[in-house]
Simulated assay, not measured.
Amino acid sequence: MMKIEDIKGVIPPIITPVDEDENVNEEGLKKVINHVLDGGVHGVFVLGSNGEFYAFDFENQKKAVEITVKEVNGRVPVYAGASAITTKECIKLAKMAEEVGADALTVLTPMFIQPNEEELYNHFYAVAKSTKLPVLLYNNPGKTTNNISVSLVEKLSKIDNIVGIKNTSLDFAQTIQYLKVTKNNPNFKVLSGTDYYIYGTLAYGGEGCVAGTANVAPKLVVDIYEKYISGDIEGAMEAQYKLMPLRDTYSYGSFPVVMKECLNLMGINVGDPVRPIEHCSEAKLNELKKVLIKLDLMK
């Protein structure tokens, strides 16, 4: 059983390679898992937004979690995304992830609809109660248009198996407020979900990050965390600045294609994005190469 202390460090939301029919590609997924594990990451998160979770039916989601659990083989905790528009579907995904052997769940706010605070509380409460697994809340208001407020985090943090939140928001003040209202709760962890704010989140007492760029540059992202933890504050800040040009490339194509493009350019063949998303333009791919060369990720 996963311990609360295990929720820490760098947890990449791994990309999901697909075959020509846009089903999960097992060999490609194993490659990505081993690439990030070789980089020293502290967890693996399958079926996040970088993993195009929204693109897969239930069978494909189950397959992705199964492959990840088997390939990781206990080396680090596996976090499985259990995100959907309805509570019923999230519960179905939560139960599947538990059965398949995931260590924890990550649950995004519903998308498309706009539940009020009470409805959101009831949603997360119901999903948490449907499983024995620890649940990490996932706030990504830019993508879902729903924001988990500070007062809602305070309430949800009192539910036994809701153990933390990943904040993918450019509103860094909100991350600080999450930390403030939960600082007396040792069983609740706050993680950065925005790769610009990894160092800042650690400095305010956060536990680490769920970083899309760790798909591509796991060693560099791990460097920010490890150096910070060991007391090398300057080294951690330097690694954070070094990472920023890679995070800046997100705008080179439609989300989430860019991290897939980077891995392809690095020779880790992960194939195509799921349509309607398409590959970056030739010009942007050349820009991307320059960034990867500068980071010593390709020649």
Rank of each mutant, 00 (worst) to 15 (best):
A55R: 05
N60W: 14
Q61Y: 02
Q61M: 00
Q61G: 07
K62T: 13
K63W: 13
E71Q: 13
N73M: 06
G74A: 14
R75P: 14
V76T: 05
A80W: 06
G81W: 12
A82T: 10
S83T: 02
A84F: 00
I85G: 03
T86I: 03
T87R: 08
C90Y: 04
C90L: 03
I91W: 07
L93V: 02
A94Y: 04
E98R: 12
E98D: 06
V100Y: 08
G101F: 13
A102P: 15
A102I: 04
D103H: 02
D103Y: 03
D103S: 04
A104D: 05
A104S: 10
A104Y: 06
T106G: 12
V107K: 01
V107L: 02
L108D: 06
L108K: 05
M111E: 00
M111W: 10
I113E: 02
Q114H: 09
P115S: 01
E118V: 12
E118N: 08
E119I: 12
Y121W: 03
Y121H: 01
Y121G: 03
Y121C: 06
N122M: 13
H123Y: 13
F124L: 13
Y125N: 15
V127W: 01
A128M: 01
K129V: 03
K129P: 01
S130E: 11
T131S: 13
K132I: 01
P134W: 14
V135Y: 09
L136K: 07
L137T: 05
L137V: 08
Y138P: 15
P141E: 14
T144C: 06
T144P: 08
T144W: 12
T144R: 04
T145S: 10
